[in-house]
Simulated scan of single mutants.
Amino acid sequence: MKFPALSIDLKDYERTLYDVIQSDDCVIFFDTNILSFLYKINESARQEFYAWIQTIKHRCFLPKWNAHEYMKKVTANQDDEYLGELKRVSETVKAFGNYRDKPVS
C-alpha cells in the first residue's frame, strides 16, 4: 500500500495551532506529563509558561486523576521521574567542577 505524499507548511500549522489555543472556545486539559515536564525545563521557560497560564487560566483544567497521580508520586518519594534529570545535571556540574579544580600535570 502506498500513501500519498503529504506536504505540510510548518509555519502555517503553527499559526493555526496558536490561533486555536488563543481562542476563548478552546479548553485546555493538562496531563500529568505536563506537570512533570515543568521540572525538566529551565527557570525562565517555566516562568514564561506560568505567565502564559495566567492569561488563559479560566480555560485551563487539571483532571482530578492527574492531580491524584502526580501527588501520589510526590508524597511517596517516587518523584525521580520528575526530578531525575535535575539530579543528573547537578551530578554532571559537580563532576566538571571536580575536574576544573584539579591541577593540570
Rank of each mutant, 00 (worst) to 15 (best):
K2M: 15
Q47V: 07
Y50G: 05
C60F: 02
T92K: 12
A95F: 05
T32A: 06
S44L: 11
V27P: 02
F49K: 06
V74I: 12
K64Y: 04
V93E: 06
V74P: 04
A67N: 08
L62A: 00
Q47Y: 13
N66C: 14
K2N: 12
V89R: 08
L38C: 07
L62I: 04
N66E: 10
E81L: 15
N77T: 11
D101Q: 14
W52K: 13
K102F: 07
K72L: 10
H68S: 15
V93Q: 08
Y39M: 05
Y13W: 15
K40I: 06
I41K: 07
Q22P: 02
I56M: 03
D31G: 00
E48L: 07
V74F: 11
L35I: 06
F96P: 01
E14L: 14
D80F: 15
A76C: 07
D24R: 13
N42H: 04
Q54N: 14
Y18I: 13
S23Y: 07
R15K: 14
L6N: 06
L83Y: 03
I21D: 03
Y50H: 13
S23C: 09
F37T: 00
D31H: 03
I34G: 03
I34D: 03
R46L: 09
E91D: 08
K87P: 00
N66M: 09
V27M: 11
Y50A: 11
K72R: 08
Y82H: 00
L38I: 05
I56G: 02
C60N: 00
Q22T: 06
T32R: 01
A76H: 06
D25I: 02
S23V: 00
D19I: 08
E14I: 10
V20K: 15
Y39D: 01
V27I: 15
L10F: 15
F29T: 04
P4A: 11
N98C: 11
L6G: 05
S44T: 10
V74L: 10
D31N: 03
N66P: 04
R15V: 05
V20F: 15
S7D: 14
N42R: 09
F37D: 00
S36K: 00
K102Q: 07
V74R: 04
Q78L: 05
H58C: 10
L62F: 01
K57V: 13
D25A: 12
S36Q: 06
Q54C: 13
K72H: 14
Y39C: 01
L86I: 10
I21W: 08
M71S: 11
V27F: 15
N33Q: 02
D19G: 13
N66A: 13
G97H: 08
G84H: 03
F30T: 05
P63Q: 02
L10Q: 15
G97T: 02
T92N: 10
E81H: 12
F37K: 08
T92A: 14
T32L: 02
L35Y: 01
